[in-house]
Design a protein around this nucleic acid. Structure first.
Length: 290
DNA sequence: TGCCCGGTATAGCAAGGGTC
DNA sequence: GACCCTTGCTATACCGGGCA
């Protein structure tokens, strides 16, 4: 049986040139060190040192074994350093704010994976609107938040992308168009409209305003995307929603892309003004790693 | 040449852990 | 709990170089 003490002894003998000084270095008695070295040689079936003139000199095979032993002990040291460095990561809490859609779709698998990697870190997720996410980040009441279309200068971990699509009743005049042609935002805003917000300030109304347009006839304003789809099926009006919110069952609905696509991205950004905690850095690094 | 010193090897023992 | 194995300890023998 060989243990780490044998390999430490081997390297110590090579460094000091004598078994006695090697024994002192590793904290053994001379005789114990001598026995350990003999045991190592016996176990390997080769002579690692020649004992002569009050010193122990490595044989050719001994030099090769010593080199490998040094690599092994260095690797062990690396393992120790990794364990020491990660100790700070083993505990902690991340307060995270997000708007509902991301909280319901993207975050659960991400947080499951994170919990598997860092079981000691608790993630507390708050469901708020996108405006509230920014307010909580500014006030540093959360450690990180999910934001829409983050500015390039924000150090954000990308969670996902999608695009806005028009949803119309199946029998609507615009629904006769093909997917290739799509629908103009300008003609969409003229239609009776079911405005769905999903709890976000970025919605059909703000997108129209950004394009210098306005929703001409908002029949109903709802928070839940699912409510909007039901109302569109009932031919109350048309709507504009993120592609990711579309239901699997789309009977009674016609989904068309915008002729000029409006892309959307959402990302996790840390609160500014203070360095991210080790726990939050681990989460952001996990996002970067994909 | 004999003694001293430093280094190595070995016998015997105790302690600890695993197995039945 | 007895037994066995491993490990490391102490004590001691042995060896070789240095020195008077």
């Amino acid at each position: 049986m060989m243990n780490l003490m044998h390999w430490r002894m081997l390297v110590a003998v090579a460094d000091t040139g004598t078994i006695t000084r090697a024994a002192e270095r590793v904290g053994m008695t001379q005789s114990g060190a001598s026995q350990a070295l003999a045991q190592l040689e016996d176990n390997l079936g080769v002579q690692l040192f020649v004992r002569e003139n009050r010193q122990a000199l490595p044989t050719a095979v001994g030099e090769q074994v010593i080199e490998q032993a040094r690599l092994m002990l260095a690797a062990l040291q690396n393992i120790r350093e990794i364990a020491d460095a990660s100790r700070d990561l083993l505990r902690g809490t991340i307060r995270l704010a997000s708007f509902p859609m991301v909280l319901a779709t993207f975050l659960p698998p991400l947080l499951r994976r994170f919990k598997q990697l860092y079981p000691g870190i608790q993630v507390v997720a708050l469901e708020v609107s996108d405006d509230e996410v920014e307010a909580l980040l500014d006030a540093r009441l959360v450690d990180a938040g999910v934001v829409l279309n983050p500015a390039p200068q924000r150090s954000a971990g990308l969670l996902g992308r999608d695009t806005w699509v028009a949803v119309l009743p199946a029998g609507h005049a615009l629904a006769r168009r093909g997917q290739e042609q799509g629908v103009d935002l300008q003609e969409l805003v003229r239609e009776p409209f079911v405005l769905a917000t999903g709890g976000c300030s970025t919605n059909a109304r703000s997108l129209a305003a950004d394009a210098g347009l306005a929703l001409a006839d908002v029949r109903v304003e709802v928070r839940e995307w699912s409510s909007a789809f039901t109302l569109v099926r009932e031919q109350v009006g048309v709507t504009l929603v993120p592609q990711l919110t579309l239901p699997e069952q789309r009977h009674g609905l016609c989904v068309l892309p915008l002729s000029v696509p409006i892309p959307r991205s959402f990302a996790l950004v840390p609160a500014e003004g203070s360095a991210p905690s080790p726990a939050l850095r681990a989460l952001l690094e996990m996002l970067d790693a994909g």
